[in-house]
Nucleic acid binder design. Structure first.
Lengths: 196, 196, 196, 196
DNA sequence: GGGTAACCGAGACGGTACGTCAAGTCTTATT
DNA sequence: AATAAGACTTGACGTACCGTCTCGGTTACCC
């Protein structure tokens, strides 16, 4: 049975982990450009060839790290207190604060830069934040369908999430801080104006 | 008066134009990374020092070209037929089509990458598209205030525009094409559900 | 008795032959540098370790191939018509022609390069050509002792051969072709000026 | 007049010297293979590109150093006491001693290796030693024409020199030391047997 | 109208990183 | 135990650009 196949040593999991780890650390420290394959290799204690054997580019490494949850793991979950409006506000506040910090801003732009030359990174970035996992905006909005006049059953929650996240992205790119007015406005865009 | 002083020749406008021109062309041809100062200099028939004398980085060149209207000049104007819903739909369709073409997609990502390491580019990108000039989304929405139930006077048109443009950016990054359903959904996000 | 012992398969003669064969072919095709152990292994259908187990370096492989007569096998035999002068002339002519051809020249330099980092190759090169086998210069000169005034019994035939071969070597290194004058001169060096 | 030509900075003589110097030192220390362009660059305090800009290969650097007299400068001059036989013997003795020392042997083989992949090195090696400058074998033999029965006017001194030097090369390649018998034999090859 | 200062093109320089090749060692499964 | 396969670290290759720095030549203003 088992078609079997080849002999020889098997891919080293230790090397793989060390590479992802080193990449994530250096991404945070120095930003996406200035992130060098040689640097990752040397920090991970690994030969360059081992990186090139398994990944096509540095953006592919970032994509995999993202997939493994080594970046943006959990900080960005949307809370669920039953009150969508308040939850969205709190989440936007949290995200806005992260974007205000130098590291947060830098990380955000690094991820965007990575997405720029790797479709997977863009895809995953969108999935992780706007997507459908627990804690994602889309999920939270789905739960709130029907509870607000502007959010009737059938409302396009995915697209609303996308618009919300897109707005944050644009803020990050233009270095415009997210103040309370902007947050209120975005909540309005998502779920309609506050009742009275 | 003329506090000035200084002798010597004045900045060569011809060189400046040649540099911007070369940068714009090569940006379109080869993408933001792979855009090299040396390449721009040689294509423009200019010494490297002439570039470094006047710009701090290649992203600054792109920023200036953007400001001069040498990129994204006019294609992206929002029409005004009196019917916001129809106008937005048409505009999103047009933008979506641009993003579908290889050059359009590449240019979009190149600009995002440029924005990634230059605040001005991000700022101008936001202004040009979402901003307040004639043909910008925000302007069109302002004109429509009051004409739709979801767009009462005082609605946060700037933030709505931002969300719309952000959604497009996110699509560009994740290489998700903009189909008719998505367009309809985005219009709903912006100006509310179609009346019956 | 049969001290022996040891289980497991024994050195594979097939592998050994395949390796030597592959090495000789690739030496001729691509030259000594550009001759890679990995290339030999893959052409021979053999694991790298099998090569490293039995040889210390690629020059050792060449040395062994040389010993096996897989290189320079026979082309370079000195004829024996009874007339040393004529025989030497013919042989030098033949060698000179080989050195003129691209493959011949390349092979010669490859062997010199191999000799450069392996004493055995140097030794064998000297033995094979200048040495004492049948067809070697030294042997031919020994047979001619006494037949020429400059070649009395007791003449240092080994050293004369060495000088002759060395001259060829120097020609190969300096890419100086061996013309008829040079051949005549070398014959004079070896066996004295033509009578008359 | 003077057609002139281009502007711009001029080749740095300091860099050129540093590179040749570093190359010569490392050649002596580590041998021709193991001589790395990167090593030369770093020892010379120079960018790699500066080397590649002016030389095609490491053997070309060695060729130039040889031409500049930075290698084999003077040690190998043939003395001239009036007695060819004695002079050649002394010179062969000196060369033989150099070849016996580890550095000398290694240097000799390094030069041969360099000649192996660069025609100029081979050419210059031949010229410097066998050639026609003062102190060269050929020159010495020319001076001795007529003074020995085996060295009549018109004897092919260039070819004799070549044979002598070639014999030394062959000794170097095969790691055969040059003993007194061999020296005597070579002198015999060159100028005939000792008179009684 | 001679000085002098800033411009311009060209491009050499010391560097960093790229992506590739091969070396020699080690590991696995197979024979 | 020897093999074919091939992953591993290391180190060098030759190339592309970086940003800085000369060069020689050319304006334009200022005495």
């Amino acid at each position: 049975m088992a078609a079997s196949s080849r002999s020889g040593p098997v891919r080293s999991e230790a090397a793989r982990q060390a590479i992802l780890q080193a990449a994530v650390e250096m991404l945070a420290e120095r930003g996406y450009d200035h992130l060098a394959i040689e640097g990752i290799a040397s920090r991970a204690g690994v030969g360059k060839q081992t990186i090139y054997r398994w990944w096509k580019s540095k953006s592919a490494i970032i994509a995999e790290a993202l997939l493994e949850g080594m970046i943006l793991a959990e900080r960005l979950e949307v809370p669920d207190t039953g009150d969508v409006r308040r939850d969205l506000t709190a989440w936007l506040r949290a995200v806005g604060d992260v974007l205000l910090s130098p590291q947060g801003e830098s990380l955000a732009r690094s991820l965007i830069a990575a997405a720029t030359d790797n479709a997977d990174v863009g895809q995953r970035l969108r999935d992780v934040i706007a997507g459908s996992g627990s804690g994602a905006v889309s999920t939270r909005l789905t739960a709130a369908l029907g509870s607000e006049p502007h959010l009737p059953p059938g409302a396009p929650v995915d697209d609303i999430s996308e618009a919300l996240v897109g707005a944050l992205l644009l803020r990050a790119l233009s270095r415009t801080p997210l103040d309370d007015d902007a947050i209120a406005a975005l909540v309005t865009v998502a779920v309609g104006p506050p009742s009275l």
